[in-house]
Simulated assay, not measured.
Amino acid sequence: MPNTPANTPPDAAEPDDHGYDRPSKSQVKRDMLALQDLGKQLVELSTDRLKQLPLSEKLYDAVRQAQRTTSREGLRRQIHYVGKLMRDADADAIRTQLDIWENGSREQTRAMHRLEALRDLLLKDDEALTGLLDAYPGADIQHLRTLIRASRKEAQSNAALHAGQDPQRKHYRALFQAIKALNDSTEKE
């Protein structure tokens, strides 16, 4: 029995009892199919997104050609070719970026929820503005007060609407954008 650590996978590139020091055929095939699946995901992306990925010119052209291919068999062959070109690409960087695009950044979502909660707090509680000004000392207090006042007035008029009438959200959204701009300016510093 070879002296290998217990946490080493059985298909690792270490010699086994028979003297093989390469990955198994099955592992190579799994890796190639994973790259081909990644290539399929690239074919489904928009041109703008493709340009943001670290792709070689040859790979980018092959993906664009697959996007233009209408024949089922031609598309299958082109995707196979894209998978072959993926061997030389930085697959981990591509997967990471695709994951961010697909799932969205959880941190960004949480940040947006925090800003929405802060906006709602500002509309309910006058003391919340003091806390906001402590957190963002460079904030334009007069502009924020005007937006809060207009948003509250807007909410009152929306409460008096009849069923089927669309509520106004102009100042409500403007207040959110002002808070977001404050948050973005402090993150850049």
Rank of each mutant, 00 (worst) to 15 (best):
L53V: 03
R77I: 12
G39F: 14
R68E: 04
L35S: 11
D90A: 11
R64W: 00
D37I: 11
D37Y: 04
D37K: 15
L59N: 01
Q36M: 15
L75H: 07
V43Q: 08
E73V: 15
Q36R: 15
E44R: 14
R76F: 09
R72T: 13
G83Q: 04
G74W: 02
G83C: 06
R72V: 15
D48E: 14
A89Q: 14
L55F: 03
S46Q: 09
S46G: 12
S56Q: 11
E73C: 09
L42F: 07
L85E: 09
Q52K: 14
Q52D: 05
L35F: 11
K51E: 09
D48K: 10
L35W: 13
Q52A: 13
K84F: 04
A89Y: 04
L42P: 01
Q36D: 05
V43P: 01
L53D: 00
G39Q: 10
S56H: 07
A66T: 03
A91H: 12
Q78N: 06
T70N: 09
L38E: 08
S46E: 12
L50M: 05
K84E: 07
T70W: 00
R87N: 04
E73R: 14
S56Y: 05
R64F: 00
D61T: 02
L33A: 12
G74F: 00
Y81W: 11
H80R: 15
L55T: 02
R68Q: 05
R72C: 08
I79Q: 08
L35Y: 05
D61N: 10
E44T: 12
R49A: 06
Q52R: 14
L55P: 04
A66W: 00
L53P: 02
A89I: 01
Q52Y: 03
R76K: 15
L50W: 07
R64D: 01
L85S: 06
S71H: 03
D48N: 15
A62M: 13
L55K: 02
T70M: 10
Q67T: 09
T70S: 11
R87W: 03
V43R: 10
K51R: 14
L53G: 00
Q78C: 10
Q52N: 03
Q41V: 03
M86F: 07
D88T: 11
K84V: 09
A62F: 06
R87C: 05
L45N: 08
Q36F: 11
R68K: 13
L55M: 07
Q78L: 12
A62C: 09
L45H: 08
D61L: 07
L38F: 12
R77G: 02
Q78T: 07
R77L: 15
G83R: 03
D92W: 02
D37Q: 15
I79F: 05
T47Y: 04
V43C: 07
L50C: 07
Q65N: 08
D48H: 08
A91W: 12
K58G: 01
G39A: 13
T69I: 12
L85T: 06
A91C: 10
L45F: 12
V82F: 04
D61F: 00
L38A: 10
E57T: 13
Q41T: 06
L55I: 04
K40Q: 14
I79N: 03
A66F: 02
S71P: 02
R87V: 04
D92H: 06
Q41K: 12
K40H: 10
T47V: 09
L75I: 03
